[in-house]
Design a protein around this nucleic acid. Structure first.
Length: 585
RNA sequence: GCCGUCGUAGCUUAGCGGUAAAGCACGUCAUUGGUAAUGACGAGACCAAGGGUUCGAUCCCCUUCGACGGCUCCA
């Protein structure tokens, strides 16, 4: 297995060389500057400075053809170790020079590899005989993209050419098929087809508008979270969406995130901001009075919209927006209560919620990066303490977890839950954060057993994170086939002929009266059209009423997932549906 | 923000330097149909917006807005 992976990596790395060579031949080696090109997941890329030349997708076919043309000449490699001076003289390109100097500074050897007459700076890791070992149909150039030199936006933007590569043509095709499948269930596409949300150019980019059907989904999900939280004695609170600048100056957000704040200047010249998060507001609610330790924890829940001025190029469907609704909650408690609180949120809210959709959860312990203390509030000691509490909790569980250095929030470490969806993709979803810094800044206390003021801590806990983003993940996870309890339309009642309308209407009314979200399709269309329509809309169940049904005083029930379920009495259908809804199946 | 691709009816797309076409959806009429599409007729788009080149632009050029794929970012 490991060997196979190494071989695949070498294949992809070799193809990066071949790509660079082909590009050099077409665009002339002295007109362009090659930089670097590694193997990546599913393929490889090469970053190239094309100078004045503009490269677009249309050039890919030509380059790909050239790669295939020169591949037979790539029979074997010549490997050479050279001095720094030789290397600098040979490559004559500032990007390579930067790399050469770094290699030399690290005291490593500078090596070049040559194949088919093309020499590149490289530490090795290729297929030994490319011409024999590479199936010319197992790779494909994918797309052109911009990429900053060394990933730093202050640097020049290079042209990155991405390629896909596998050991066989069949594997490449399988990958492309899988990608097409993923595209079919893209939430942006399904959101339109299933009529869940829209964007308006007039409203602005990154600002989703939710349709009646989409709103049903949002509300049901939010209700579900509340149902779980209610058992843990949370209380709902409500806050305004704008606030004075001073609140964020005190919380520390103004300084760290002023570029991402939507700002408003009042007619009297005061500066306000749209809220980018809710903690400072909730802190003000907590801080309204003096608390006894007996009254803690105070647990405030609030699903509310936050606003962040993201760069336009980052926006994407519902995954990254400028206005998103957080299912937010803050727990104000004593340090000694933290572990129990965290454990309960984990066990009684996060786990059951994600499990019910069939997501597998992995935990990331998100820690601060000691190399960049300027990114965080508070001192090293309190960070270490907070992190040790979270680590302890994670270790006590059987859940698989890994540590993410530098992934912490600026005010504290986090437990970030990663969900794996039905296509095997990982998404960050729930986040539980321990915060010792904002209570410090706002001087939050309770009166303890000794009658002294004791500093408290706060826990931030968003389960879906953002309802919008969670829905984008859920839509793709279930491919638009929402479970019955969540489906905007749960049942469609279809009369075969208009003469069956009356009986069908009664069935529909019965469902409606029992709070089943039913739709009555009395359009003068044929049965096939109506069934097709139900399937296209991914409605979980539909009921067909015709002569046979009326005669038997039963109706035919069909399921999106299980097919024909035969003739059943109205009462049986109702109890079956209600049961399934109740169990969130 | 940066690099690349792109923006034609509600949706999916065709098209061309001489002011636009199709399918689905929609409306009217006929069809009373048992599981993926009955027929006829009709309405619907100043071709994202604003400039420019041209006798003339949806088509060529520029700017802006918006979408997508990357890069950077993601409290």
């Amino acid at each position: 297995m490991e060997k196979k992976e190494e071989k695949l990596n070498n294949l992809r790395h070799t193809l990066a060389h071949l790509l660079a060579s082909a590009v050099g031949e077409i665009y002339k080696f002295d007109k362009i500057k090659l930089t670097l090109g590694p193997a990546i997941e599913n393929g490889f890329y090469y970053d190239i400075d094309f100078g004045e030349e503009k490269i677009s997708d249309s050039a890919l076919q030509k380059i790909e053809d050239r790669m295939r043309k020169i591949l037979p000449k790539w029979t074997d490699w010549q490997h050479k170790e050279i001095s720094k001076e030789e290397a600098l003289a040979f490559f004559k390109n500032e990007y390579k020079a930067e790399l050469i100097n770094e290699i030399s500074d690290r005291g490593e050897k500078i090596t070049t590899y040559t194949c088919g007459g093309f020499t590149d700076l490289c530490r090795g890791g290729h297929l030994e005989h490319p011409a024999q070992e590479i199936d010319p149909l197992s790779f494909k150039l994918d797309r052109v993209a911009g990429a900053y030199w060394r990933g730093d936006e202050k640097n020049k933007m290079l042209t990155r050419i991405y390629g896909l590569a596998f050991e066989t043509k069949k594997e490449l095709e399988a990958y492309l098929t899988q990608r097409e499948e993923a595209e079919k269930r893209d939430h942006k596409k399904l959101g339109k087809e299933l009529d869940l949300f829209v964007f308006s150019e007039l409203v602005g980019s990154g600002l989703p508008l939710w349709t009646p059907k989409g709103t049903i989904l949002r509300n049901l999900l939010d209700d579900y979270i509340w149902e779980l939280r209610k058992k843990l004695d949370y209380m709902k609170v409500e806050i305004p969406h704008i606030t004075k600048k001073e609140l964020y100056e005190k919380s520390g957000h103004w300084d760290k995130f002023k570029n991402e704040l939507f700002r408003i200047t009042t007619r009297e010249g005061h500066e306000f901001a749209m809220k980018p998060m809710n903690c400072p507001h909730h802190i003000q609610i907590f801080d309204r009075k003096q608390w006894s330790y007996k009254e803690l924890p105070q647990r405030y829940a609030n699903s509310t919209t936050c606003y962040r001025d993201e760069q336009t190029g980052e926006l994407s469907g519902l995954s990254r927006v400028r206005a998103f609704t957080q299912d937010d909650a803050h727990v104000f408690c004593r340090m000694i209560q933290v572990k129990k609180e965290l454990g309960e949120i984990w066990d009684k809210v996060v786990e059951p919620f994600y499990k019910s959709f069939g997501f597998n959860l992995k935990l990331r312990l998100s820690l601060h990066d000691p190399a960049h203390p300027e990114k965080y509030l508070g001192d090293a000691k309190s960070w270490e303490h907070a992190e040790s509490v979270l680590r302890e909790l994670a270790q006590e569980r059987k859940t698989e977890f890994f540590e993410g250095v530098g992934e912490a929030a600026f005010y504290g470490p986090k437990l970030d839950f990663m969900a794996t969806d039905s296509l095997g993709r990982q998404w960050q979803v729930a986040t539980i954060q321990l915060d010792m810094n904002q209570p410090e800044r706002f001087d939050l206390t309770c009166v303890n057993e000794k009658g002294e003021k004791e500093r408290i801590v706060m826990i931030h806990a968003a389960i879906m994170g953002s309802i919008d983003r969670f829905l984008s993940i859920l839509i793709e996870h279930v491919a638009g086939n929402f479970p019955l309890w969540l489906a905007p339309v749960q049942v469609k009642v279809i009369p075969v002929r208009t003469s069956h309308n009356e009986y069908a209407k009664k069935v529909f009314e019965m469902l409606k009266e029992n709070n089943v979200r039913a739709e009555f399709d009395d359009a003068e269309e044929n049965l096939g059209t109506k069934v097709r329509d139900a399937k296209n809309n991914k409605i979980p169940y539909w009921i067909v009423v015709g002569d046979k049904e009326i005669e038997a005083d039963k109706v035919t029930l069909e399921s999106r997932d299980k097919g024909q379920l035969g003739q059943i009495s109205k009462e049986e259908i109702l109890s079956k549906l209600l049961e399934e809804i109740k169990n969130k199946k």
